[in-house]
Amino acid sequence: MKTIPSLPKPFKGIVPPMITPLLDDDTLDVEGLERLINHIIDGGVHGLFILGTTGESTSLSYKIRHELVERTCEIVDGRVPVLVGITDTAATESLRLANTAAEAGAAAVVAAPPYYFSLGQPELIEYYEYLVERLPLPLFLYNMPSHTKIVIEPDTVKTLSKHEKIVGLKDSSANNAYFNKVLYKMKDRSDFSLFVGPEEIMAETVLLGAHGGVNGGANMFPELYVKLYEAAENGHVETVKALHDQVLEISTRLYALGKFGSSYLKGIKCALSVLGICSDYMASPLHHFRKEEREKIAENLEDIKVKIQELGLKAQD
Rank of each mutant, 00 (worst) to 15 (best):
K170A: 04
S146Q: 08
E292C: 01
K314T: 08
T252H: 13
A111R: 12
K158D: 02
P136M: 11
K291N: 12
V30M: 12
I50K: 08
E292H: 03
V226M: 09
Q316S: 13
S251D: 15
T87R: 04
N219A: 09
E153H: 09
G217H: 06
L51P: 02
K227V: 04
I75N: 04
S57F: 02
L83Y: 00
I41G: 10
A203Q: 06
D26P: 08
T205L: 13
T156A: 14
S172M: 04
D280P: 08
G168W: 02
S146H: 03
N38S: 12
L23S: 13
F195Q: 06
Y178L: 11
N143Q: 12
N180I: 05
D29R: 04
C278T: 14
L254C: 15
R96M: 01
F195L: 10
I268R: 11
L194T: 03
K241D: 08
L137T: 13
G197P: 14
I64M: 02
A111L: 11
A271R: 10
L275E: 15
G197A: 09
S59W: 00
P81W: 00
L183G: 05
E292V: 05
Y184R: 12
L160P: 12
P154N: 05
E292N: 10
M18G: 13
Q309G: 12
L97F: 01
D24K: 13
S59R: 04
V15K: 10
L224A: 09
A174I: 00
V82C: 08
S273V: 02
R294E: 11
L224D: 02
T72Q: 06
T156E: 06
N215V: 11
L207V: 07
T100P: 03
F289D: 09
K149L: 05
H211M: 02
T27I: 08
K266R: 14
K165V: 03
L97A: 01
A112E: 07
P154Q: 04
M144W: 05
G52C: 03
G47T: 07
I86C: 06
G120A: 10
T252A: 15
L83A: 06
D191I: 01
N175G: 06
S94M: 03
L194I: 03
H66Q: 10
D171A: 09
Y184G: 07
P222F: 01
C270K: 10
L286Q: 05
G32Q: 03
E200Y: 00
L137E: 06
A218N: 12
N215K: 02
G85H: 01
R189F: 00
G43S: 05
P17H: 06
L33T: 10
F221E: 05
L311Y: 00
I268N: 12
K185H: 07
L7Q: 07
T252S: 15
L169I: 14
K307I: 03
T54S: 11
A218F: 04
C278L: 09
T156S: 14
A283S: 06
I304N: 10
R253S: 15
K314V: 09
Q316P: 08
P5A: 04
K269D: 01
L7I: 07
A231V: 05
A232I: 04
